[in-house]
Design a protein around this nucleic acid. Structure first.
Lengths: 109, 109
DNA sequence: GCACTCTGTCAGTCGATGCTAACGTTAGCG
DNA sequence: CGCTAACGTTAGCATCGACTGACAGAGTGC
């Protein structure tokens, strides 16, 4: 499977990563185009350190992938991860249906 | 339109709201079934105050709707809001395509 | 009006997190 | 090997956000 860690953990990690505006901007930047860390950092008014930390968070959430090439590190957005997140959002309602069914059974007992 | 506030602000508010595990649990709880505030609070081991604040955050993000009935306040998840969020996530890549096109034009100049 | 219920709001505490500055690490070049 | 470039990592600081306890308000029944 694609889930070495529990699914809700990974979804939570992605949502926490996306909660930060700057991380969303970074994700948009590496969507479709692979970019190097310094290249990304140059786009923002914060230190490279801060951007590097954001990249770490995004990477650990699975939203971006890292590839090394010499001293450079290239990043790209993982669309599959976003799809997984979108599916999990749908799951909110299917879980709700399960609970509704359970309630009905309780009433019938 | 459905957007009195800029779209990215609303998306950001939703993501920030969903970043909190307890708020996700609350959202699941009111997905499909309308529930009262106290009823929701009873499901968790935190004070009603905390739950009330979570409900406020969720409401301001647009993820849930509030309806008053007597002294009670009933909450339900707004699936439309989640759909809007999912669409915004897709938008990450369409924006990327726009940028890619712009880059091509630059190269051609 | 009085009491009781259901709920939101305010003030204050404490841990989480985003930031900067200084340092460590790895790859390539002479 | 020495030097530089491109990164990540650590320590320390400031702000944010989740929580609790005490209080306030609106609705219902007596």
């Amino acid at each position: 499977m694609t889930s070495p860690a529990p699914l809700d953990d990974r979804v939570g990690a992605m949502l926490r990563a996306l909660a930060e505006p700057r991380r969303r901007a970074i994700l948009r930047l590496v969507a479709g185009t692979e970019r190097a860390a310094g290249e990304i950092a140059a786009e923002f008014d914060v230190s490279r350190t801060a951007v590097s930390q954001h990249l770490t968070v995004l990477k650990e959430s699975g939203l971006i992938a890292e590839r090394r090439e010499g001293t450079r590190r290239l990043y790209r957005a993982r669309r599959e991860a976003v799809r997984e997140l979108q599916a999990a959002l749908d799951g909110i309602w299917s879980d709700a249906l399960d609970r509704a069914r359970a309630l009905v059974e309780e009433d019938e007992s």
